[in-house]
Design a protein around this nucleic acid. Structure first.
Length: 609
DNA sequence: TTAGGGTTAG
């Protein structure tokens, strides 16, 4: 009987099933392709809703390909959270989902500000669904970790990538370096991954150099770039952007010019971003005219190009030119954003254009529909303070519709000290310390106010509080670039090879300046010591040491460029004016907020600083 | 049919 099993019948049945399945598969593939084309043309949120209804109607909720395209469209339309709700509702058949679909939604979250943690959620859910990550998963999830900047999170993802054995391809390792370099305290781990990997192209070098720059370790960034060159790895435009940022941070114009010549020599692709980085470098290293020239020759400009050049002009006190460039930008049809307004308002602030600044602050909302943020209010307070309108600044802060932040309070307090509103400054500083007791800058402000009031006991007590809390004032330092080297000076620096000669030079400068009418502003010295010692103290400020060093080591008539990490003190400011005239030198000084061009006894800032 | 490093302010 067994032999009578109707084998042929079964075969026929199987063949029938196979054929109909093939047909249905082909039909489905055809309709999937059609539907994908439909999705491709979707360009509004209401389109997306219609597509979603169609997905349900046609039963495509089980097609990972269609869902992936849906996610990527939703991401383009800033509606990734909407797609998320659709995909991960309790009724979804998530067992149809594949790695490609998960990678796409993780990527969408990773590239959206404020939603990066959701990328981690989706990644964990992917593992819960037992969908194995593939080569493409880790670069996107590591990028999300980099955006979040949490080292522990990054380390746990690193652990899982080792578990799945997906740590042997370049994009994964490159993003791993990038991730570690973007997390607080992670640069050592980034360097370890970097040192242990094979580095055939520029990408890991750019990631590591960029990491040093973000951390403010620009000297290390430049050293690594030099090492890259000795190892014969060809830099590309992204490496060049990172090194240019290091030059910008260091204020190293000669180094920046060398990079520019290297870009030309190596025929590096001059992308928009690279041109923007060059503009920024030239403007912030003191040659704003070169920045302007470059800007004018660019075929393609973005809002970043305009902002860089406007901010550059602002830093050099060329406020009117910055305003006119902003007007040209608007005429050219480029929509301003909040960042360019910060540049514009700071241009008004650095040039004393108070009325212009008020006008643009109003126009921001009325004409351009941009709601001023705390930074814009900060610019306005800074502008009023620089112009000496401290009382008006206080009124402005009282009327602000948003809560002032501690930066605004510190701007006000500093202005109170400069413009002799000492009682008001003291009360504001004490209030700020009550609200923010762990920030050293607040104690420094209060202590400086007490020094100006000659309340030495209170000043000492404030410094003691700082000591007991283990706080240290950031020491003022000045750097100068000479013969491809960067020299750093701190006040009273006695570690330099030439320190004896430098001190002698500073004393000689002091004598010459006094002969020309300079009076040391000993009120700037925040110490309870006699006047003569105060003069000595002023003469040992890092700016003066750096200028003395430059006068000794450069030919007569050469311009001197210095970079100060904090704001230049008023005594050094006045002394540098005298030095520029006596020694016939142009001195270009960058401080934390702007440039000062000293020439023939005058400064370009017109004392708005 | 998916992956790596970059520019403006604060």
């Amino acid at each position: 009987m067994q032999t009578s099993i109707p084998k042929p019948k079964l075969l026929i049945t199987l063949r029938t099933i196979t054929t109909s399945a093939t047909v249905s598969c082909n039909q489905r593939a055809a309709s999937e392709r059609g539907f994908l084309n439909l999705l491709q043309s979707c360009n509004t949120f209401s389109n997306l809703l219609q597509i979603q209804a169609q997905i349900l109607k046609l039963g495509f909720q089980n097609s990972p390909l269609i869902l992936t395209k849906f996610v990527s469209k939703a991401s383009d339309l800033n509606s990734i959270e909407y797609a998320h709700c659709f995909l991960f509702s309790p009724h979804s058949n998530t067992h149809f989902y594949d790695a490609f679909l998960f990678n796409t939604i993780i990527k969408a979250y990773a590239q959206t500000a404020n939603l990066k943690p959701k990328a981690l959620w989706v990644f964990n859910f992917m593992l819960e669904c037992r969908v194995l990550p593939n080569d493409f998963t880790y670069p996107v999830i590591l990028k999300a970790c980099a955006g979040i900047g949490d080292l522990n999170l990054g380390m746990s993802v690193h652990g899982s990538l080792l578990k799945f054995g997906l740590h042997r391809n370049d994009p994964v390792l490159n993003t791993l370096v990038h991730m570690y370099c973007s997390c607080k305290g992670g640069i050592v781990f980034g360097r370890k991954v970097f040192d242990e990997m094979t580095k055939n192209d520029s990408v890991p070098w750019s990631a590591m150099i960029g990491g040093y720059v973000r951390l403010g370790r620009s000297n290390d960034a430049v050293d690594l770039f030099r090492k890259m060159q000795t190892q014969g790895v060809c830099p590309d435009e992204i490496t060049m952007v990172a090194v240019l940022c290091a030059c910008t941070d260091l204020g190293a114009l000669e180094l920046g010019k060398w990079i520019e010549s290297l870009i030309e020599r190596e025929r590096v692709n001059k992308s928009l971003e690279l041109n923007n980085a060059l503009i920024d470098m030239f403007a912030k290293c003191g040659d704003v005219d070169k920045a302007l020239k470059l800007f004018r020759t660019m075929n393609e400009r973005s809002i970043v190009s305009w902002t860089s050049v406007i901010v550059g002009l602002a830093m050099h006190g060329r406020g009117l030119q910055a305003v006119s460039l902003f007007q040209q930008m608007v005429r050219d049809g480029v929509a301003p954003d909040g960042v360019v307004f910060i540049g514009l308002l700071s241009a008004c602030s650095h040039s004393g254009l108070v009325e212009k600044g008020k006008e643009y602050f109003d126009l921001m909302r009325k004409e351009f529909g941009l709601l001023p943020k705390i930074e814009h209010y900060g610019c306005m307070v800074d502008m009023l303070c620089r112009a000496g309108l401290v009382r008006e600044a206080v009124e402005f802060v009282q009327k602000m519709p948003i809560e002032p932040n501690s930066i605004i309070w510190r701007t006000l307090i500093n202005a109170c000290r400069t413009h002799n509103e000492l009682k008001l400054g003291e009360s504001l500083a004490r209030q700020l310390i009550r609200n923010e007791p762990m920030l050293e800058a607040n104690y420094v402000l209060l202590s400086n106010i007490y020094a100006k009031m000659s309340h030495w006991e209170k000043k000492t007590k404030t410094r003691e509080v700082m000591d007991t809390k283990g706080m240290r004032k950031i020491p003022g330092s000045t750097t100068i670039e000479l013969n491809n080297k960067i020299y750093k000076f701190v006040a009273g620096d006695m570690y330099h090879n030439q320190y004896k000669e430098i001190f002698e030079m500073v004393d000689e400068m002091g004598r010459e300046m006094k002969r020309a009418g300079y009076v040391p502003s000993t009120s700037e010295v925040m110490l309870d010591i006699d006047e003569e010692d105060k003069e000595d103290n002023l003469n040992r400020h890092s700016e003066k040491l750096a200028i003395a060093f430059a006068l000794m080591n450069t030919p007569p008539g050469t311009p001197i460029r210095i970079v100060k990490n904090l704001r230049v003190c008023s005594d050094c400011h006045s002394a540098t004016k005298f030095i520029s005239k006596i020694y016939n030198r142009e001195i270009i000084a960058r401080d934390r907020s702007r440039f000062h061009h000293f020439k023939d006894g005058l400064c370009s800032c017109n004392d708005f600083w």
